[in-house]
Computed example of a mutant assay.
Amino acid sequence: MLDVISGVLADALVGAGFPQGVRGRQLYSVADFSGAHASAGYDTYAFLVFDIDRNSWWLRAQRAFRSEVLKSRRRMSFKNLKDRARRRALKLFLMAAEEIDGALIVFAIKKDHGSMFMTSPVERDDDVLNAWKPTVRERLMRILHLGALVVAGVSKPGQDLMWITDQDEIASNDTQLTQMTSVFARIWGNMTDHSLGHLRCGTTRSDDGDLALEDLCSIADLAAGATCELLSVMARQRLFAVKGIVTPLRPSAFSQKTMAISNWLAERARPLKRIIIVLDADGSNGAARVTHLRLEPLPSL
């Protein structure tokens, strides 16, 4: 399945811009996730990947955003967009994010998919996973395998990697973070033939006070949250994309924040590539299906 996903991702990354062209020395991969709430029909895993030294413009824009637009230390998270200050700031935040020379890749996995692994991590009594409760291990291994697959698809030999995730149950303490780095390195070693330079894993706790890491994680958070709601509503309405056919959606079926972010995810004219890959069952034979979901923007939004 990972080979299939890798092929779909490689096709989606074809074209001008990242990861082609001039590259930087240090690759960042920033991850956030959604789907834990009861109404979610999908688990979503979002990875924002870019060369930090090729994106100095965004770092300047982020500082201006924090000093002029969202002056408090509020985080731009999907679930907190009921807050008026965050709603007002959302458009400018997304406008800056789409200028990042990189890729935002969201994987959505149907809740009833089951384990992605031949031997479920939940059932394994493996020393390397002892830092996590059994109930967390499937999620952890999905995140690390999908994250490694993304890095394998966009990295260049010898690049240093900084892998950042939100500070949640997979990286809630230093022991888990150290062990996660070790497991990621093992998985990475089985993904590709080329080697990286230095590999470091961190969380938003590593932020130096300017909230740049928080805001980068927020880009992934917004994408994961909107994709989760979008696909969950589509599943309840028995809608799914069919190759060669544009499937219209009723905006009234979705929250305003999901429609706004989904419209932004559909944009293809700016530097940031936005890719949604869905894993679910093929209704015809019960096999797993991997789909590159292409959204079309609504002109009225």
Rank of each mutant, 00 (worst) to 15 (best):
L9G: 10
D280I: 15
M1C: 04
A253W: 02
N263R: 01
D125W: 10
D32E: 06
G153W: 08
T44R: 00
G153Y: 01
F240N: 05
R88I: 09
A287N: 14
V22D: 11
A31R: 05
L211E: 09
G153T: 05
V136H: 13
V22I: 14
D168S: 11
T181S: 14
Q62W: 03
N285W: 08
Q26R: 05
K133I: 14
S115R: 00
D193Y: 08
N190V: 15
R60A: 15
P134V: 06
N285P: 07
R75E: 15
A89Y: 03
D125K: 13
K110R: 11
S252V: 10
M141A: 00
L211Y: 11
T291A: 07
G225H: 07
P121I: 05
A38Y: 06
D208Y: 02
L48T: 09
D101S: 01
I100W: 04
E296T: 11
R54W: 09
D174W: 14
N285H: 05
G41H: 06
Q26M: 03
A212E: 12
T258R: 03
L104V: 04
A226I: 13
D53P: 02
I245P: 02
R54Y: 03
M180S: 14
V136A: 06
L230D: 03
F93I: 05
P157N: 03
S300D: 09
Y45D: 10
W57G: 15
A224D: 15
A96M: 13
C217S: 13
S34D: 12
L104I: 09
I219R: 12
P121G: 10
A287F: 08
T192R: 05
R289T: 12
I170Y: 00
A235M: 15
A97N: 07
A220H: 11
H198C: 15
K111F: 00
M234S: 02
M76A: 02
F117M: 11
S255A: 09
L146M: 15
V242M: 14
K110T: 15
A287R: 10
C217P: 07
N285C: 12
D160T: 07
Q26V: 05
M116H: 08
A131E: 04
F33R: 04
V150F: 07
S262I: 02
D207M: 01
L90N: 12
R60N: 15
S120L: 08
S155N: 01
P299Q: 09
V278G: 08
S182Y: 06
R54D: 09
D280M: 14
S232Y: 10
G197C: 05
L230P: 06
S218N: 14
K71Q: 04
V8F: 02
D210M: 07
R238Q: 15
T192N: 07
G202N: 04
P248Q: 01
G158P: 03
S72G: 14
L239D: 01
L81G: 06
L90H: 05
D166P: 08
K79V: 04
H194T: 15
G209R: 00
V154P: 01
K243G: 13
S72Y: 06
I219F: 06
G153D: 08
G7L: 00
W132D: 10
E123F: 12
I275M: 01
G189I: 09
K273V: 08
K243M: 13
L298W: 09
G153N: 07
A103W: 00
